[in-house]
Computed example of a mutant assay.
Amino acid sequence: MSTEPCQCAGKEQAAFTPRPIVMCGPSGTGKSTLLKRLFAEYPDKFGFSVSHTTRKPRPGEVNGKDYHFVEREVMLQEISVGKFIESAEFSGNIYGTSYRAIEDVLASGKNVILDIDMQGVLILQRQLASGEQKLSGKPLFVFIAPPNVQELEKRLKGRGTENEESLAKRLDAAKRELEWGLKPGSVDAVIVNDDVEKAYVELKTVILS
């Protein structure tokens, strides 16, 4: 008698488990713009997994909303005890996605969106392939690409947050990410963001299908 309810509950839970959706692509491709539109149109379907970072907040960024801004020592300690699904270092700063951030969204009954860079995605994909991954459900990997590197450079310069050295590093990283992301089999879907309206329609088609 006691076994049947447990089996039914397990099946019901599996049937309604939201799907993790991993958004990746170089900085400056418009991922944040597309995600803001998605959350505004479907507030009950999607929630954002807020990443942790050791970098300082940029003007207008809110702790706990844009990122969880933490000290380097704190983040390294939490990574060492397994609190992060993935983490990577870029330009002297650590970025990572914690299990807690993902679980908070899943607990609300929403699909969880993860914004992860190439290093983090590769770690996540290796974990999935080896069976180490603790997430339930197979993530959908979506790569957002710029129309070309020249346009990406223009967008990054337009932010006004990069000096010559950091801009050069981001562009070098972007070229590597593009080489990886555009290679067949790296991700489930590639969206070229040369027009926001068109890219948003494509994104909805991919993740709502």
Rank of each mutant, 00 (worst) to 15 (best):
S2Y: 11
C6Y: 14
C6N: 13
G10W: 02
G10S: 03
A14W: 09
A14E: 15
P18S: 01
I21D: 08
I21Q: 06
I21E: 11
P26D: 10
T29H: 04
G30Y: 06
K31Y: 08
S32A: 03
K36T: 14
L38G: 04
F39T: 13
P43I: 11
D44E: 12
D44W: 02
S51Q: 15
H52F: 04
T53K: 00
R55M: 01
P59I: 10
G60N: 04
V62I: 15
D66P: 01
D66S: 03
Y67F: 13
H68V: 04
F69N: 03
M75N: 03
L76Q: 14
F84E: 07
I85Y: 04
E86P: 03
E86R: 01
E89A: 04
S91R: 01
Y95Q: 00
S98D: 06
A101T: 11
I102P: 02
I102W: 10
V105S: 08
V105Y: 04
A107T: 06
G109R: 02
K110G: 04
N111E: 13
N111W: 09
D117G: 06
M118G: 01
Q119W: 09
G120I: 09
V121I: 12
I123Q: 15
Q127E: 15
A129R: 14
S130Q: 13
E132V: 09
E132Y: 07
Q133Y: 13
Q133W: 14
Q133T: 10
K134A: 14
G137E: 12
K138F: 13
P139S: 10
F141Y: 14
V149C: 07
L156M: 12
K157H: 00
E165N: 05
A168T: 10
L171A: 08
A173C: 07
A173F: 03
A173V: 08
L178C: 03
D188T: 05
A189K: 10
V190R: 08
V190S: 08
V196P: 12
E197D: 15
A199E: 10
A199D: 11
A199G: 04
E202G: 00
V206I: 14
